[in-house]
Design a protein around this nucleic acid. Structure first.
Lengths: 226, 226
DNA sequence: CGGATGCTTTGGCTAGGACCGAAGCATGAG
DNA sequence: CTCATGCTTCGGTCCTAGCCAAAGCATCCG
């Protein structure tokens, strides 16, 4: 009642089932329209409109108007990290939705987390990079070592370009299904994009799950050995 | 609305101002009693009781019953991480509150906990006894070793008499200022009484603070070296 | 044994906010 | 221009959940 930022307003915002569903839907990283999010939340357009206005006002979402459509997306990686953290807590306390289908298993194997790779494969990548000293923990958090820069260059990722931007290159993100860190930040995003471009992976149309191609899995294992 | 863990229940739990205040208060790492948390949240005892039950049921808090008090603490580092993440988000959108002042320093140094010594001095005593093997952790909890019995006898405490009573001789008690264990049980009470009788300490009038005399502090340091 | 203290349960009150239908604005299509 | 589509505002209903007082247990004290 007397110190620190006011958590409760923000948490209450996420605490509505409809708004939470919208946020989770946006964890896929793609921007969605108001109507799509209304369907996702299972409410009518007016209700969704109110929800989306409140989420935007609170700074959780960014809006982009395009013609008569309005596209919403998560405002930042921090927002995604909090949502992922909540998923982890909910998962560990048996609050999962009663729907442990095959899609759920696929999600645990590999999925999109905002704009980077998560799940067992995401954690594998992180561990592999860390074990080989390509990723190091510095005073300011996670940093790419010199060897790591070379490695990323070999993958076709221009680290220099990433470093000129204001957003952090390397960040940890807590994986809700593995309960361990995976790689986020602009580097995580770039590597994910590179894997998608290279045909290593493709995204499942209806969920956040990510499916590896046969050859893609081989390349992934070669690039990020356990 | 169709995938992953159910975030909204958890977020709604944190989304109440009272419960959020409790969680923030517990971010310091100390365990707090129900009454203290009620004050922190600015609600009456019945209301707080309901909140705390819900937080515990959801796995966000752990409970430790001690006499007629109930100590609550954050359940895990994951919970703390989520709260911290929410604080970060709230802070970045300018929703901070005022800072608190420092608390009674004397209480942190030494105080009465029911009938035994608590605070830095209480923890020092506990650590000293444990480090010298006078206090050991057995299957049934804390026990006094044979050497410990001799030591207690030297202090003038009749351990044999304590052991005939029904109440446990040695118990751990969670120290709220140090957030570590100190010695409770009938032995803790007996040692405290002996220190009071011997003029090592005297109790401050209205508060729970305990003040060491000059000579008493010397004897204490000799009996319970760091 | 009372009497005091800390926590919980119960009951009843109330406010906040989630929801929808209908009407109101924009923008784009024909 | 007129119509259709996408989103927002308004008005009203309904239900959840927070809140407290009072009574009920449990524990400790003298």
């Amino acid at each position: 009642m007397r110190e620190g930022p006011d958590i409760s307003r923000l948490a209450a915002l996420i605490g509505d089932p409809g708004r939470a569903a919208m946020l989770v839907a946006l964890m896929g990283g793609q921007a969605l329209t108001a109507a799509e999010l209304a369907a996702e939340a299972g409410v009518t357009a007016p209700t969704a409109s109110g929800h989306l206005a409140r989420l935007s006002d609170a700074g959780l979402l960014t809006v982009r108007k395009q013609g008569r459509h309005k596209y919403f997306a998560l405002a930042s990686a921090e927002v995604a990290a909090v949502v992922e953290g909540l998923m982890g807590l909910a998962d560990s306390h048996g609050l999962t939705r009663t729907r442990p289908g095959p899609r759920d298993e696929g999600m645990r194997e590999a999925r999109v987390c905002y704009n980077h790779l998560a799940g067992r494969r995401g954690v594998q990548m992180y561990d592999s990079l860390a074990a080989r000293g390509l990723l190091e923990v510095g005073a300011e958090g996670l940093v790419l070592s010199q060897a790591g820069r070379v490695f990323a260059g070999g993958l076709g990722v221009d680290v220099g370009a990433l470093e000129t931007a204001r957003t952090p290159v390397c960040r940890e993100c807590l994986d809700w299904s593995e309960r361990r860190s995976h790689l986020a930040g602009s580097l995580g995003r770039a590597i994910f994009a590179r894997m998608e471009r290279g045909g290593w992976i493709r995204r499942d149309g209806e969920s956040r799950a990510v499916v590896f191609s046969r050859s893609g899995l081989g390349e992934f294992e070669a690039a990020f050995p356990v």
